[in-house]
Amino acid sequence: MIPAPFDYLRPATRAEAIAALRDRGEDAKVLAGGQSLIPLLRLRLAAPTALVDISRIEGLRGVHRAGDTLVIGAATSHDEVLRHPLVTEHCPLLAQAVGTVADPAVRHRGTLGGALAHADPAGDLPAVAVALEAQLVLAGPAGERTVPAGEFFVDYLETVLQQDELLTEIRVPVPGTGWGTHYEKFHRVAQAWAIVGVAALIRRDGDTITDARIGLTNMGPTPVRARAVEQALLGTSVHNGGIAAAAEYAAEGTAPTGDLAAQPDYRRHLARVLTRRAVERAAGTRGTAEPVTAG
């Protein structure tokens, strides 16, 4: 199918892009990789009158390190993110999770910023950004502001981004030593969106968990931090069932929806099982090769 007609704008600078978004108002959409937007246009589920293509704006792509922070340009493709040596070295969780997004061809075009700004609760990266405590840099007519990932997502497909704002950077704190991470994704076929996903960062001191951050995918209209699990894990041994006991809290504070993929009670159940597995893998007490994946 063919999208409805629209105007196409290709600003050369951030300022031009922001101006274009301001001028065109509600009916303008940012086009980065287009991997979520173009299918919606084709199905005519979205019909913006203008697309503002930010993909050629200088400085929106690439990864660099600034002190204890990885700075990732919002228009950096998934493929660039997951292969970038700085990411694989300092933030393997992000590389692993990005590698589960869609498929290689989509990852060549789709961007990290786009996946966050689209704010699909079934998307893998919002929960990962929340668990990583990433900071998102938004540029608008009045300048830049920085928003923690945990405050960026407002509702289903909705963020704090204003109509004339642009997500320009994702700043990911580089974890110190002792951290292990894992993203556990559960879906029915390779191409399907996550029914539930769990991003886990676990810091160990010997056998004791000293810090934990858990982000849940698709357990509500926005990504959720599993705070009760994090709390329960603190000071727990990675052996002797402490992780399993903590993981039982995974569904607390979540509001999963019922849809074609799963009913809420099943999602809550999965959150508990997958949280246990993700934490065990992050803590290094469980193999990374999941014996059961298909079906």
């Binding site: 290709r10 086009l31 084709r42 697309l51 075009r109």
Partner: peptide
């Protein structure tokens, strides 16, 4: 690199 040409605009 591989792309799905149904999900790329010609202008892109």
């Amino acid at each position: 690199i591989s792309v799905k040409s149904c999900t790329v605009l010609a202008v892109q």
